[in-house]
């Protein structure tokens, strides 16, 4: 019974019980407005010659990739923060993003060396390489998960893997040619423009898998936040639960990184915002709110990146960092 309840719930938040659904609704409303603003410029040009092609083949995939990517990253962040019982955990911390970056750097460099550049194969291989790199890190984490009982050891392994793959990427880029470096740097800036309509299915599927894991294990995850003993007393295996958390969070982060490049801050901020609104760390209510927050963040960043300076697209990661850094500092300062 204990595990089904919100594990951490402040008294002031309890007093604001009536406010929470309204705040969630407000966040949903904001998300809807941003979505409309992002879709509107092309939707109105729908009937113009070629307007339908631009909308369906180019604009729609970008906006929906931003929305789905934001949702997947927020859930990935939520699960990772649960796994490490640390509100600062994210895909960067356990080495997923450096692993994916390594995969892309390797295929960009090797593609040219093997003459794949001209055939265009290296472009097509990029998402697969990112996925491969992320999965490599995930496999190492899963293997070590069986041996390492201490959470902080797992976290340290993630950090060390991050340094390792970061160093490998540095060596690769130092020996690569200018064009390869350009291609790699463009991928590293992050963005939803490169997502094809067919790839939305894969992005959506990863988010769906993450959602199913979150929904199915939400009570167990709540107990996990209170400590291993609470999980064991509920008759669940801590190791199994960690396995689900790693699989869920890493696969979502890996697939988003593969298709959209490394997208920073969303996985860190969205769960925070959600917990502030809900006033609880319980997973149930935070699933919807963190999804709203994640999608609102990525859509806002996408909108600003495309509209802030006419005829220029700004890097998504730069926008997210400018929004994200003050928010995180503000939240930490308020908490302290």
């Amino acid at each position: 019974m204990q595990q089904s309840q919100a594990p951490i719930s402040s008294s002031s938040a309890v007093n604001r019980r009536g406010l929470r659904p309204r705040l969630t609704l407000l966040l949903g409303g904001i998300l809807g407005i941003i979505l409309l603003l992002d879709l509107e410029p092309y939707a109105t040009r729908w009937l113009q010659p070629g307007g339908d092609i631009i909308f369906w083949d180019l604009h729609f995939p970008r906006v929906f990739a931003a929305a789905i990517g934001g949702i997947a990253l927020s859930w990935s962040g939520l699960m990772m923060q649960t796994l490490f019982r640390n509100p600062l955990a994210g895909p960067f911390l356990i080495g997923i993003t450096p692993g994916a970056t390594f995969g892309v750097a390797l295929v960009t460099y090797l593609g040219a060396s093997m003459g794949l550049e001209d055939s265009g194969t290296s472009f097509a291989l990029q998402p697969l390489a990112a996925l491969g790199g992320a999965m490599l890190v995930l496999s190492i984490q899963l293997l070590l998960q069986k041996k390492l009982t201490q959470l902080h050891s797992l976290l340290l392994v993630g950090l060390v893997l991050g340094y390792f793959f970061g160093a490998a990427v540095d060596i690769i880029t130092q020996t690569a040619q200018a064009q390869q470096v350009k291609q790699f740097v463009m991928w590293g800036m992050g963005g939803f423009d490169r997502v094809l309509p067919s790839q939305l299915i894969l992005l959506g599927s990863s988010a769906l898998i993450g959602l199913l894991i979150l929904l199915y294990h939400r009570h167990a995850f709540n107990a996990y936040l209170l400590g291993d003993i609470h999980v064991e007393s509920a008759g669940k295996s801590v190791k199994n639960l960690r396995l689900w958390l790693i699989i869920g969070s890493a696969s979502m982060a890996a697939i988003v990184t593969a298709y959209c490049g490394p997208v920073s801050f969303v996985g860190l901020i969205a769960p925070h915002l959600s917990r502030k609104i809900q006033g609880t760390e319980s997973h149930g209510p935070n699933i919807l709110t963190s999804a709203f927050a994640g999608a609102a963040l990525t859509l806002t960043a996408d909108l600003l990146a495309n509209q802030l300076i006419p005829n220029t697209v700004l890097p998504i990661n730069a926008i997210l960092s400018i929004i994200g850094a003050p928010v995180v500092i503000f939240m930490l300062a308020r908490k302290d």
Partner: peptide, 19 residues
């Protein structure tokens, strides 16, 4: 077209160049 010397390469960089 930079390093691309074939139409196939251009298409692989993003299939939407077909428009």
């Amino acid at each position: 077209t930079d390093l691309c010397t074939t139409l196939n390469c251009l298409k692989s960089s993003d299939p939407r160049v077909q428009h």
